[in-house]
Design a protein around this nucleic acid. Structure first.
Length: 233
DNA sequence: TCATTAAATTGTT
DNA sequence: AACAATTTAATGA
């Protein structure tokens, strides 16, 4: 590493938008409107970004931080659907169906959230084919994750749960910009995978020994993405 | 640039 | 849950 290393570019809202996979396909008018309409909100760690049952009037994306999409059943059972790292977008399903939100979104640490107004979202939906294409890919990917979840989740041992949790948060096409490394601590990973931090540590060491990832301070570097997604099956 | 310190995170029991 | 070890970030000379 050269000692003249340039400081990592700040995770600004504008930078995040321009790196978004759907942004590249927009025309100039669309880009101008998007950059004008999208605002940024800071959510403290532990706080709700949006609540189940609440009205949905924004399509949201993670500029910087970490979110958890989850639900609590009437019996008090916690179900986490997805972890959302930098560059992840969510809420399109509820926007398209125009119904109340079906899940809670909670910040696992201080997180900056990009908010695109419903009107802008619908405007893009009406006129941009690349935007529609992105939504299609995005929904399809999400569907695949949910199918895998109902198929295996209850049967998986902790190692596999951690592996799949990581695999679901890395997507070179839908969430670019993270490269092959994920900034997530072992405690946060435990919250997402539903296992203790100690067990996360144990799982990560096994996964590292099998050559699927490498453990870094404050994060994980993905080595074999497909191996992580397949792990345990 | 280097040393010191505090804070965060990891590894182990 | 508690503890020790490690890494990073911040501070000031």
């Amino acid at each position: 590493m050269p000692h003249t290393s340039t400081p990592a570019p700040a995770r600004t809202l504008q930078r995040m938008l321009r790196a978004a996979p759907w942004y590249a396909g927009l025309d100039d008018d669309e880009r101008v409107r998007v950059e004008c309409d999208v605002s940024e909100r800071l959510v403290a760690g532990g706080a709700f970004v949006a609540r189940r049952g609440g009205r949905v009037d924004h399509w949201m994306g993670v500029v910087e931080g970490l979110l958890k999409m989850s639900n609590v059943s009437p019996e008090g059972k916690l179900a986490t659907f997805a972890g959302m790292p930098d560059g992840a977008w969510f809420g399109e399903g509820t926007l398209l169906k125009n119904e109340a939100r079906r899940y809670d979104v909670i910040a696992l640490r201080d997180t900056r959230v990009a908010c695109m107004p419903r009107t802008t979202f619908e405007w893009l939906l009406e006129r941009s084919i690349p935007f529609n294409r992105f939504l299609l890919d995005h929904l399809n990917e999400r569907l695949g994750q949910f199918i895998a979840m109902v198929e295996y989740d209850r049967l998986l041992d902790p190692d596999a749960r951690v592996a799949r949790c990581l695999g679901s948060m890395v997507h070179p096409l839908l969430y670019p910009g993270n490269g092959d490394s994920l900034r997530i601590g072992q405690e946060e990973l435990g919250n997402l995978a539903g296992v203790s931090r100690q067990r996360v540590n144990q799982a990560l060491q096994r996964l590292e020994n099998e050559g699927l990832l490498s453990i870094e301070y404050g994060g994980i570097r993905i080595v074999e993405l497909e191996g992580l997604r397949r792990f345990g099956s």
